[in-house]
């Protein structure tokens, strides 16, 4: 078992966002989380990746309790968040962005190998290597966000709405590459708004509704 979440509660101030979410993701799985906007999908991913505090419940990754660990602590364990707003370093080049993905010592050792992998997965990024990240198109920025995640020597990637702002054709390409990443043995928890988009690609689906895992979405 890769990730196991039990009865997770998250608040923004006094606002109760996640009301006891439980789910498990198997090692090597490509799991999907779907649900409408504002129902807590992103919050779930951010909580897993240490970007929002957890009020109650437990999260374990490969048997280790990870509640309360900071985002850098989690990156060091291979848990990487790829955000819907991509949080790239706009004033730095594509290459600098990728190299910052390999900031921690564990990832730095594998940087050369991972950079080759990223460039073979997204040749477009190699072409734009010297361009500032802020000047990339939406699709290229998404590639860079995923590429930067891979550079962190990720073992578990939480990917938040990669289709956001992309044309349908591009979305499909992006999801293809996410499947390719998964095929390399990286466990993925993928958030999307609609089931149709990811139904044929994921091994398991969880639907989230008003902060709860709501229904059997796909069987």
């Amino acid at each position: 078992m890769s990730l196991e979440i039990r009865d997770l509660h998250v608040f923004y101030g006094d606002f109760h966002v996640l009301h006891g979410v439980s789910l498990t993701v198997e090692e090597g799985q490509l799991a999907g989380v779907i649900g409408a906007n504002g129902h807590g999908k992103s919050t779930l991913l951010k909580a897993i990746c240490g970007l929002v505090p957890v009020r109650a419940g437990s999260m374990t990754y490969r048997g280790e309790r990870i509640n309360g660990l900071s985002a850098p602590d989690l990156v060091a364990r291979g848990i990487v968040y790829v955000a819907e707003v991509r949080h790239l370093f706009a004033q730095m080049t594509v290459r600098e962005n990728l190299m910052l993905g390999a900031y921690l010592p564990r990832a730095r050792k594998a940087a050369a190998r991972n950079l080759d992998q990223v460039y073979s997965l997204y040749p477009r990024l190699k072409e734009r290597e010297r361009q500032l990240a802020g000047t990339l198109s939406g699709g290229e920025a998404q590639m860079l966000a995923l590429g930067r995640g891979l550079m962190s020597e990720a073992a578990f990637m939480a990917i938040d709405e990669p289709s956001l702002g992309l044309a349908p054709g591009l979305t499909a390409t992006m999801l293809d590459t996410i499947q390719a990443i998964n095929a390399r043995g990286i466990t993925i928890l993928l958030v999307e708004q609609s089931l149709a988009l990811i139904a044929d690609r994921v091994h398991a689906v969880h639907e989230i509704e008003e902060g709860r895992i709501a229904a059997l979405a796909h069987a």
């Binding site: 970007l51 985002a71 850098p72 990156v75 990487v80 955000a83």
Partner: peptide
């Protein structure tokens, strides 16, 4: 946030 996401 981007910095935290890469482990800084």
């Amino acid at each position: 946030t981007g910095a935290e996401m890469v482990g800084i």
